[in-house]
């Protein structure tokens, strides 16, 4: 979140210096309505606060060199920051998503709220620094806020190097990721060893296996949690939107606006979860997602009722 480490800030200032015409050329994001106060949660290892809704990039930001789609996704990134967004999560596994982040950042004034989250994804445990440097160049930033070992691939070697990089101030936080409920046992062992700031895992209203062991352990060990696949790859929210209105009791209880609000608030209301990272290709969906990061959160009783309701559909 510290802006002095970003090349993109300098780049953005240069762009600003060339005139507002550049901004106008790429159709600025429409002004958002009165947004209310964004919900923030602390990263346990430092207390630094993050907006509870971040931005995932799996599938959605892999557009190759299709300029029309690159510009369209840039609008999504602009809208994300316009809505007060913080964490953007990416990976070398996501095709051209890293290039797209650099493309988008060259076309906007990257705000101080950016919390850049990347991953190391290579079986070669000796290539940690090389891949971090490559990602840094593609994003156009000097230092990542968070660097994670993707899907625990060669995690021992990568984590060792990442710890050195963190000590040297080359990354601010380090972590590990998994998804789809895979390798939870191994993740648990790494969390118990300590030395990591973040874990990323799949958690949504229909995939709650992490509630048993990993989320309580994260709280106990002071590790921040990023929830991926909040909509189960899109199928969950598509199924719910298809002919099912959000229940009236949810509207009354926490002013639930739509299914995005329902599903995301369920996730981020878990005490161990720091943020969720829904991915989208569309600005209107992005704004729905971000709206879930404001207002009231459901309590434990309400969360149980939310589960029962979704399971009954």
């Amino acid at each position: 979140m510290k802006n002095e480490h970003r090349i993109s800030r300098r780049g953005a200032l240069k762009w600003m210096g060339t005139g507002l015409a550049t901004v106008a050329l790429y159709s600025p994001v429409p002004a958002a309505p009165d947004k209310g106060k964004a919900l923030l949660k602390p990263i346990p290892s430092t207390g630094e606060k993050l907006p509870v809704i971040g931005l995932g990039t799996w599938r959605t930001f892999n557009v190759g060199d299709d300029r029309e789609l690159m510009l369209a996704r840039t609008e999504v990134v602009k809208a994300f920051f316009d809505e007060g967004g913080g964490m953007v999560d990416c990976s070398p596994m996501y095709g051209s998503a890293r290039e797209l982040m650099g493309f988008a950042f060259r076309r906007m004034d990257v705000p101080d709220t950016l919390f850049s989250a990347e991953k190391v994804w290579t079986r070669d445990g000796g290539k940690t620094r090389e891949q971090v440097a490559e990602s840094s160049e593609l994003w156009g930033i000097e230092r990542f806020d968070l660097m994670q070992v993707h899907n625990l691939v060669a995690w021992e070697a990568h984590l060792e190097t990442l710890k050195e990089m963190k000590e040297a101030g080359e990354v601010r936080y380090i972590g590990i990721t998994t998804s789809h409920g895979r390798r939870h046992g191994e993740m648990e062992r790494i969390m118990e060893r300590g030395g990591i700031d973040f874990v990323q895992l799949t958690y949504n209203i229909t995939h709650r296996a992490v509630e048993e062991r990993l989320l309580p352990l994260a709280r106990e060990a002071g590790i921040a949690v990023i929830a991926n696949r909040p909509y189960d790859g899109g199928s969950l929210i598509r199924g719910l939107k298809d002919g099912h209105p959000v229940p009236d009791w949810a509207v009354e209880a926490f002013d639930c606006k739509d299914w995005a609000d329902f599903l995301l608030k369920f996730i981020v209301s878990h005490p161990a979860v720091t943020c969720a990272i829904p991915a989208t290709t569309r600005v209107e969906h992005l704004r729905e997602n971000m709206a879930a990061g404001r207002g009231e959160l459901p309590d434990a009783d309400l969360r149980r009722r939310m589960i029962r309701h979704v399971e009954s559909i």
Partner: peptide
């Protein structure tokens, strides 16, 4: 057991829009 958790979708890292626009381009 881990392999059983994978779906074909996990190996397709792009959306239909992107692929069919690539054909077009």
């Amino acid at each position: 057991a881990e392999w059983r958790t994978y779906a074909v979708e996990d190996f397709i890292p792009f959306t239909p829009e992107v692929y069919f626009r690539m054909i077009e381009r």
